[in-house]
Design a binder for these strands. Structure first.
Length: 206
DNA sequence: TAGGTGATCTTG
DNA sequence: AAGATCACCTAT
């Protein structure tokens, strides 16, 4: 049976652990009268304290990131580079501004609708392999900022935890301005899954 | 690999 | 009021 993630799940005080355990869960939207969904295959954790890559680092508070200071279980959607809406899951309790960026999904339900939203311009492999791509495919935009993930527009269904051995851990993408925090290994994706946004070559063998 | 892109935040 | 700064994408 399909089952939503519990509200308590989002309130855990460990955003890094949540970012890992979200892998394998199914992200659904019902937007513009259309149901689409995909399995979460890549995430990144952003923490409100001691993480220079986080919009809300050490109490930094602006109109944009306000929703991160609320309780977990809500969507933080913001516009990146002027054009791309990025979708984050707010976690932790009130005034703990943590969030998980969803970076890639494996499309499952109504793939052809997602193709259409993306302009029929990509292969299925590239359809949702990136944080800006998956929001476009799922119909998520900035009007969805702050909505509840237990609602009927965007929700996440539970699924078996991905075994530890099938999870790859790396540094986060695109956070070079974050100084030493750019080295935090807080990007997680499912090993050998072809829908992740990019695979870093590790041919640096001695 | 390089360049477009415009909302958001700072005055670098 | 304007310039710097980006949790990216697409095409060469």
């Amino acid at each position: 049976m399909k089952k939503l993630l519990n509200p308590e799940y989002y309130l855990q005080n460990n955003v890094v652990s949540i970012a890992q355990s979200l892998l394998g869960k199914c992200l659904h939207t019902f937007i513009d009268g259309k149901h689409t969904a995909g399995i979460i295959v890549e995430t990144e954790a952003y923490r409100g304290f001691n993480d220079a890559a986080c919009h809300a680092n050490n109490g930094k508070r602006t109109p944009r990131n306000e929703i991160m200071y609320g309780i977990g279980g809500f969507a933080y959607v913001y516009i990146c580079y002027g054009i791309h809406p990025l979708f984050n899951v707010v976690t932790n309790g009130l005034n703990h501004a943590d969030a998980v960026l969803i970076r890639a999904i494996e499309p499952t339900i109504n793939v052809e609708i997602m193709q259409l939203r993306r302009g029929n311009n990509t292969t299925v492999k590239q359809l949702t392999a990136g944080p800006g791509k998956l929001t476009q495919a799922l119909g998520i935009n900035k009007t969805h900022n702050g909505i509840c993930l237990e609602g009927d527009k965007i929700w996440i269904e539970d699924a078996d935890v991905i075994p530890f051995k099938k999870i790859i851990t790396e540094v986060r993408v695109g956070v070079n301005g974050a100084g030493k925090d750019a080295l935090k290994p807080w990007r997680f994706f499912i090993k050998d899954n072809k829908f992740v946004s990019k695979t870093v070559q590790k041919n640096k063998s001695v």
